[in-house]
Design a protein around this nucleic acid. Structure first.
Length: 366
RNA sequence: UGGGGUAUAGCCAAGCGGUAAGGCACUAGACUUUGACUCUAGCAUUCCACUGGUUCGAAUCCAGUUACCCCAG
């Protein structure tokens, strides 16, 4: 009997994943991970300390109860140092450069499917499993059956070895079914709200959260159309491309009505460039350079090739063509211009049948 | 201190005697395992610069006061 260790987060998805694996005949062990310590990590601003018990301990209690109901052992392990070293420091460095990183993709690459995987191997596991909505067919990953919840995007930097060692029991069922199963099992977490925010950290007032690690450096907000200063900001690194909220720009004399959106930033000059209206041409781009590409296909193409691409989680697929310009860098041309493609975020490419072909970091946009 | 103009919520701005549009911002919620976007709701319970007056009734008319703007000094 194969042994699989399931990362139990204390949510419904991983609970049902564990159940399904057990039903399939695996020897299942649960493991609860804790990778963030608010106090040790100076996570003060933007945090909500009102709750009597910290959310992580509540999740642990939930996971413990799930393990009891499913009658499986539950391990607990911390990767707080690893998370800081491999995920969070990169996250902060990227923000300091004015980019917008995706910590959860790295968390999967370095923590869940590396540090955790190694731990599980030491525990004698043949596989690890998670509650990700993603389908594994053969040794490839595909978009999940539940297109609304598909989380393959977050796994775009896993290498073949990591994929080979992993099971994804939720690839063929949708979220409503997961909740239904949870109800049938009388799981305590059957109706628990989906978690959001950075994985292991949670919901935060994001700008305040960043202020714990990146000092504020205020500067001008400039209308990119007229080069006119129309406001002040407290730090360009706190804003991302396409962002509307938090600019504080009200109605202006001699201007049309409509919201303002961040369209560019100048870190050196501390200038935040904005444009009025989300149809603004400054927000749309069609040429992208993606670096550190993780290619999961059999053979890299030598010419321009069409695929479907997402430039952010839950974005509709965009038809693009790409070509390698060196071993780990691709140039991407979008058939139709795409709104607010953001350096630091991931581009993930899929084949028409849903197979995840590649993922990489958006480096430059034109 | 001659003439003209404007003063409506944080900002822009309708309203022209009948009991305060709309937009932006902001706040809350929804959505969401990144950051965003998006959606929904709330946002002057009548000091509409201030003080009087006319009127059944005024932000809307009249007078005065104050502030700012423009043109002439």
């Amino acid at each position: 009997m194969s042994k699989v260790i399931v990362g139990l987060s204390g949510g419904v998805d991983s609970a049902v994943a564990a159940y399904l694996l057990k039903k399939q005949g695996y020897e299942v062990v649960g493991a609860f991970m804790r990778n963030w310590d608010s106090f040790a990590n100076n996570d003060i601003l933007g945090n909500n300390f009102d709750t009597p018990i910290c959310p992580q301990e509540m999740d642990y209690n939930d996971a413990k109860r799930v393990a009891e109901i499913l009658n499986i052992p539950l391990l607990r392990i911390d990767f707080i140092e690893e998370y800081w070293r491999d995920v969070f420091s990169y996250f902060i460095e990227e923000y300091k450069k004015g980019r917008t990183p995706n910590p959860d993709v790295l968390c999967n690459k370095y923590i869940k499917f590396d540090a955790f995987l190694n731990f599980c191997k030491e525990q004698g596991a043949d596989y690890i499993a998670t509650g990700h909505y993603v389908k594994k067919i053969g040794n490839k990953l595909y978009k999940a059956f539940d297109k609304n919840k598909d989380q393959s995007y977050f796994l775009c930097l896993l290498n073949q070895k990591q994929i080979d060692a992993s099971l994804f029991p939720l690839g063929d069922i949708d979220k409503p079914t997961v909740r239904k199963i949870a109800h049938e099992l009388n799981l305590n977490v059957a109706d628990k709200k989906d978690s959001t925010g950075i994985c292991f950290i949670g919901e935060r007032d994001f700008r305040k959260f960043l202020q714990n690690y990146i000092p504020a450096k205020e500067g001008d907000i400039v209308d990119i159309e007229t080069n006119e200063v129309i406001g002040r900001h407290i730090g360009v690194m706190y804003y991302t491309l396409g962002q509307r909220k938090g600019l504080g720009i009200g109605g202006l004399k001699n201007h049309k009505t409509g919201s303002w959106f961040v369209v560019d930033k100048d870190i050196e000059k501390r200038i935040l460039y904005v444009a009025q209206g989300d149809e603004a041409k400054y927000l749309y781009h069609d040429t992208v350079i993606v670096k550190e590409v993780n290619f999961l296909g059999e053979e890299k193409p030598t010419t321009w090739t069409e695929i479907n691409a997402k430039f952010r989680y839950r974005q509709q697929d965009n038809r693009v063509k790409y070509r390698f310009i060196d071993d780990t860098t691709i140039e991407v041309k979008c058939i139709d211009k795409v709104k607010a493609i953001t350096p630091g975020q991931m581009m993930v490419g899929y084949l028409d049948d849903g197979m995840m072909l590649l993922g990489g970091v958006i480096d430059k946009i034109y």
